[in-house]
Design a protein around this nucleic acid. Sequence first.
DNA 1: TGCTTAACTCAACCCACTTGAGTTATCAAG
DNA 2: CTTGATAACTCAAGTGGGTTGAGTTAAGCA
Lengths: 351, 351
Amino acid sequence: MGRAEIARSLGLSTQAVSNIIAELQEDGLLVETGLRSGGRGLPAMQYGVNSAGGYALGVEVRPDAIFTAILDLHGQTVVTRRRTLKSPEPAKVISKVLKLRDEMLAKTGLSEGQLLGAGVVMPGPFGQTGLSGLGSDLAGWQSVDAAALFEEALALPVELSNDANAAAMAERMALGLSHFAYLYFGAGLGLGIVNQGQLVTGIFGNAGEIGHVPVATPKGPLPLEALLSRVSVQEHLGKGPLDIAALGALFAEGDKGMMDWLDGACAALSQAVGLLENLFDPQTIILGGAMPAGVLDYLVAHTELPTLSVSNRADNPHARVQAGASGRMTATLGAAALILNRAFTPQAAAL
Amino acid sequence: MGRAEIARSLGLSTQAVSNIIAELQEDGLLVETGLRSGGRGLPAMQYGVNSAGGYALGVEVRPDAIFTAILDLHGQTVVTRRRTLKSPEPAKVISKVLKLRDEMLAKTGLSEGQLLGAGVVMPGPFGQTGLSGLGSDLAGWQSVDAAALFEEALALPVELSNDANAAAMAERMALGLSHFAYLYFGAGLGLGIVNQGQLVTGIFGNAGEIGHVPVATPKGPLPLEALLSRVSVQEHLGKGPLDIAALGALFAEGDKGMMDWLDGACAALSQAVGLLENLFDPQTIILGGAMPAGVLDYLVAHTELPTLSVSNRADNPHARVQAGASGRMTATLGAAALILNRAFTPQAAAL
DNA sequence: TGCTTAACTCAACCCACTTGAGTTATCAAG
DNA sequence: CTTGATAACTCAAGTGGGTTGAGTTAAGCA
């Protein structure tokens, strides 16, 4: 955008914008991106964010592994790292994260000072809740203030979030949506809710625990997670743990068990879609996370969209359900996106 | 609060606060509320909002009636009016609303200029959706820009909302909660969701359509609204339309049909509570609206709270479910509260 | 009685932003 | 090719909402 255009959209004078641009340019956060073509008057000098003006660190802590990534200001992945973990004990996690950070900085030639902040993803729910002890929480972290711990160790501002919320914010950056629900395939099934561009986190950051919501099946009500999650495919197939590539291969060859599971998953998803649409009135519902892209696409294509829904309207410009980013690193990249999102969106302190 | 206290909590200098207070006092929005007692130093002059500094108009349009109210800046009801309506045709509604406003102004001796804005409540969902034509929407309003229409007719800023959201905001003012879900008994069952002090409205303002969410019953899944709403009591009792007083009387005398209905309602509410808690992680869930207070209290007392919930935690300072304001005017007062809420909370324009 | 504490005022200052006039580069009509 | 309209941009002076720091007042406490 040019100065005048920015000024109009911000309600400032062009002079003010000029001053601010000069400052940001000096700090290396903005770069000229060429002159505007066509139109009357003096051609406007265009500006854009300098992708190298700063970097965001993303950290995902899993029970058995740590994933890290660095994104630039354009949201492009600069470098990623994965490391297995013997035990998720806080002290070990912290030292491993520091090591991975240093490795990534060394490899890319970046300095610690160029990191704007760190997004940290950990399995929720946070604190002692009625869902604790179901295997989804992280041993040794129940009574630890994780955000403060990382903040001190990394000497960076930290945003703590669960996997689904982080992945949702990454998708928000990519698609520019303001209202959506994000169904995230992790160990179980997570949900990120974005309303007016802001995450709906709940009072303790535990919003979006959709996995335990019951859905109707021919055999009676079952938790959504029992029909729509990686664990549920694996149990349905009965071949033990399978990684994304293995699931993708089974899907590609049209494996009977897989297609069978998909039938049940589509039925469950259809109910979840109805629920989410009627509760949140989103622009769209996005599926993403640790699932093969083909499976996500199949779910999107074959899920029956409920008619009894506020989203069943003729003037809806978005697909009601769509596939987002897939793969194992989705949440890690989303963690870093939390920092970018914070840097780029205005926050009002609510009373 | 005194100047120094305000300055600290706002991060401004005392001088800046002094200047602003002087201005607000001149405009009649602030009044001195006496000196602080006890403590060292010069006793602080306390200030509070002048309840007579402005007034908010609340309008609720129903298929067969119009309710209006005026609240002062403390949220106190100044005057209310009800008028039946033969047809909810836009032109008739507008002229009736103007008449009611003038009546209320005349009765209280207020002037039009003292009204800060109007909150308007209409039955949702807004626009053509998959839930249209189910009897909940208002004839003649489907393709009308209601907000603009009221804005022009009343020459006031207008906030348009559905009944549940409006009632939720009224409750927010009263209880000072930042995260909660509000189950509102209207014709059907509405839901208002507040996260970080802001309403979760969805992209078209239709969020919170919980009435059609299925819940499990011994006879198979039924819409929540079929078990937990005024219509459902009436159908269960089979005595035709009953007003709040009649329902309250039946409840007081322990009517068999009523207690029977309450059993089913509690079971349904229990499931709804689990759903809302796991999706939103609220501080509390509030029941309110057009139901006798006794019935709301009974529901709160006898609903089994699900254990499999993120809200089932020892350190939760709030009751998980509680009763809010009951009665027929709840949403109307909530409409006016929308204006007060807007006046008192900072809004960040999201990109 | 005198010291400490704290709220508040006064007056000078600061800085982000606006205002208004002037400059430059492009398009389009004569 | 010339001329005028259009639009982005710069320069320099001005403005207002805020800060800063010193001084004033009134209460509690030793």
